[in-house]
Computed example of a mutant assay.
Amino acid sequence: MELDFVGYDSTGLPEKGLWEADPDELFGRRTPDEDQTQVRFSYCVGTFHQLHLMVDGATGAVEVYNPDGWDHADGHGGLAAPSLPALAGALGLLARLEQRLTGSDTAAALEEFTALLGRLGQGPGDPDLWPDLLEEPREEYADPDG
């Protein structure tokens, strides 16, 4: 799935599969050169521009990984969704609303998306991904006078 208007891409998954990583390394809880056995796993389910959306293998939560910060304990970009089904539902809503979000109905479509996101148990202020994700269509397509 690709939602170019917000920078989401998971089109490489069928060919490449899930990228598996140690979240303790990614998120700076331990350094990669430590001689420890990996005990936790996370899996990349897509990217949002340069950020990776990683499903925590233990909790199922989808966390944001910023590859620019991994080596100085700043790789954790917050929560994207409480679960993979919640993320998939939200991305499905974005896909359904794309024409309105990128057309002349951006403000109303953003309001509808935010309300529906809340019904999925997420809000634009809860997971750390959504404020940034919603900012792009707001800045790019919304009527500055409206």
Results as ranks from 00 to 15, higher is better:
residue 65 Y to G: 13
residue 73 A to D: 15
residue 5 F to E: 00
residue 25 E to H: 06
residue 144 P to V: 02
residue 5 F to D: 02
residue 88 A to Q: 15
residue 33 D to S: 13
residue 72 H to A: 05
residue 118 G to N: 12
residue 60 G to H: 13
residue 19 W to C: 08
residue 93 L to Y: 03
residue 84 L to F: 10
residue 141 Y to W: 10
residue 96 R to N: 13
residue 66 N to I: 06
residue 39 V to R: 15
residue 38 Q to N: 11
residue 22 D to H: 02
residue 138 R to T: 12
residue 102 T to M: 03
residue 68 D to H: 08
residue 51 L to D: 14
residue 16 K to V: 04
residue 46 G to S: 06
residue 69 G to I: 07
residue 76 H to A: 14
residue 33 D to H: 13
residue 59 T to Q: 09
residue 11 T to Y: 00
residue 33 D to L: 11
residue 117 L to S: 06
residue 53 L to T: 11
residue 55 V to N: 12
residue 122 Q to N: 06
residue 22 D to C: 12
residue 102 T to V: 08
residue 74 D to H: 14
residue 51 L to Y: 14
residue 76 H to I: 07
residue 1 M to Y: 05
residue 134 L to Q: 07
residue 74 D to W: 09
residue 111 E to P: 01
residue 52 H to E: 13
residue 9 D to T: 08
residue 96 R to C: 09
residue 99 Q to Y: 05
residue 87 L to W: 03
residue 82 P to W: 06
residue 58 A to D: 15
residue 105 D to Y: 03
residue 40 R to C: 05
residue 41 F to H: 15
residue 121 G to F: 00
residue 1 M to H: 11
residue 20 E to Q: 13
residue 85 P to E: 08
residue 40 R to S: 10
residue 40 R to M: 07
residue 116 L to Y: 03
residue 54 M to A: 12
residue 103 G to R: 05
residue 99 Q to S: 14
residue 54 M to E: 13
residue 37 T to P: 03
residue 57 G to N: 05
residue 120 L to Q: 09
residue 127 P to S: 07
residue 59 T to N: 08
residue 135 E to I: 01
residue 36 Q to I: 07
residue 107 A to H: 12
residue 119 R to G: 10
residue 97 L to I: 06
residue 131 P to W: 02
residue 24 D to I: 00
residue 115 A to H: 11
residue 95 A to I: 01
residue 11 T to D: 12
residue 140 E to T: 14
residue 50 Q to S: 11
residue 95 A to W: 02
residue 105 D to P: 00
residue 80 A to G: 08
residue 4 D to V: 05
